[in-house]
Simulated assay, not measured.
Amino acid sequence: MNRYFLYLIILNMMINVIIFVPKILIQYRYEGAVSAVLIAIPIGFTLTALYCKAIAKFPEKGLPEIFENTKYRLFKIIHFGSIQAFTFIAGLITLVGFIDILSRFIDPEMPKIFILIIYLVGIILIIQMPTERVMYFLEIVLFLNTPLIFFIIFKALTSNSLSWDSMFEVGTHLFELPNLKALAAATYVFSGYTTLMIFNRLIKGKLKIWNFIAVVFLGLFNLFTTFFIPIGFHGSDGANELLYPWISTADSLRLVYSPIERVIFLFLMFYMSITLVSISVHWHVALELLKGTFKDKNSKIKKWIVLSVFILCSLAGGMYSNTVLLNEFSVYWLQIRFYFEVTIIVIFFLWARRKKA
């Protein structure tokens, strides 16, 4: 298996546990979320396979290198610009959402702007590093945090407070027609492969079939735990009343013999670094696409203009957004992202097939 590929997949799956995917799935638990989750698995696998097969035709190259000598410069600018916007928004939603979580559950008295500035300093430093170093940073974070996150999930699955009856009750709505909003949220769990547009520079050789089998099982496990465990702890109706179902679920767990008894503090501590690296990966992709679009003597100036836009948008989002507005925006953004992602991948797959031929 290629570990770099799996790192990107696992990172995206882990970050979606705490932000908006659980809330959306639980909201439509009686209206097609269960069938949407099941359908999302083959859709996510298919999109992953198509994109990986297409980009594998250009080994150790990202999109900037693939389109370096294209004659259609306007098409390149539009193509790269649209992807930059979506990857930036993906990181921005994660950033603003997690800042709201920290402010709500850790220190409500501290202004959000202070926490946001601390995160922005780290993110801006990381995204300017070479792609290889960003991957090393991701590897270290996952190596330290993933076993502990899996331990917390294990504690949740073996807890006496987990009601399997509530989970089975929601499961009885399997034959409801799939809900589009739930489907868009569920397929986003698999979207870590899209960062290969830059991180393919580090992928040596073709991806083996075992990588894609791992994606299926990881996606199935992630969607099951993300969707059903909060329902098992809070009930099929109670879980829908929570703004952040998994944060409240972590707060329901206790480690009796641990120096820190309340799991929520450990859970948020682990996710601080995971959130930092997830945002950095998305914004690094956006920044590298920008650098690949404009290769001229003013590229550094343009880079800092874009970084300034990143910072200003983040500050505006942190100061003027609220939880309800962010949730509503995320629902619509996930649907637009789903259509955009499918379109881009199909076009790129057909183009790569024709180009190689």
Score class of each variant (00 low, 15 high):
residue 210 W to F: 11
residue 23 K to E: 07
residue 264 I to H: 00
residue 276 L to C: 05
residue 38 L to G: 05
residue 339 Y to E: 03
residue 267 F to H: 06
residue 154 F to Y: 09
residue 164 W to M: 01
residue 299 S to V: 15
residue 105 F to G: 02
residue 121 V to D: 08
residue 39 I to M: 10
residue 71 K to C: 07
residue 228 F to D: 00
residue 187 T to E: 09
residue 191 S to Y: 11
residue 153 I to L: 04
residue 327 N to R: 03
residue 242 L to V: 08
residue 337 R to G: 02
residue 348 F to Q: 09
residue 223 L to E: 03
residue 301 I to W: 05
residue 177 L to S: 07
residue 322 N to T: 12
residue 87 T to E: 06
residue 87 T to G: 01
residue 74 L to P: 00
residue 173 H to Y: 09
residue 328 E to W: 14
residue 221 F to V: 08
residue 64 P to A: 03
residue 87 T to P: 00
residue 141 V to A: 08
residue 346 V to S: 02
residue 114 F to P: 05
residue 183 L to V: 09
residue 337 R to W: 13
residue 78 I to L: 13
residue 261 E to K: 12
residue 79 H to R: 03
residue 272 M to W: 12
residue 11 L to H: 05
residue 356 K to A: 14
residue 243 L to A: 06
residue 285 V to S: 06
residue 340 F to V: 02
residue 247 I to F: 02
residue 44 G to C: 08
residue 216 V to D: 08
residue 235 G to E: 05
residue 139 E to F: 13
residue 115 I to P: 00
residue 204 K to R: 15
residue 219 G to L: 04
residue 122 G to W: 14
residue 114 F to L: 15
residue 72 Y to E: 06
residue 307 L to S: 07
residue 103 S to R: 14
residue 54 A to G: 12
residue 37 V to S: 07
residue 53 K to F: 13
residue 18 I to A: 02
residue 173 H to S: 08
residue 247 I to T: 07
residue 347 I to V: 15
residue 14 M to G: 03
residue 89 I to G: 01
residue 299 S to H: 08
residue 186 A to V: 15
residue 127 I to G: 01
residue 246 W to S: 01
residue 219 G to M: 08
residue 266 L to G: 02
residue 17 V to R: 00
residue 295 K to C: 03
residue 260 I to P: 00
residue 45 F to H: 03
residue 79 H to G: 01
residue 57 K to I: 15
residue 103 S to H: 15
residue 196 L to S: 09
residue 346 V to R: 03
residue 338 F to D: 06
residue 70 T to Y: 11
residue 64 P to Q: 10
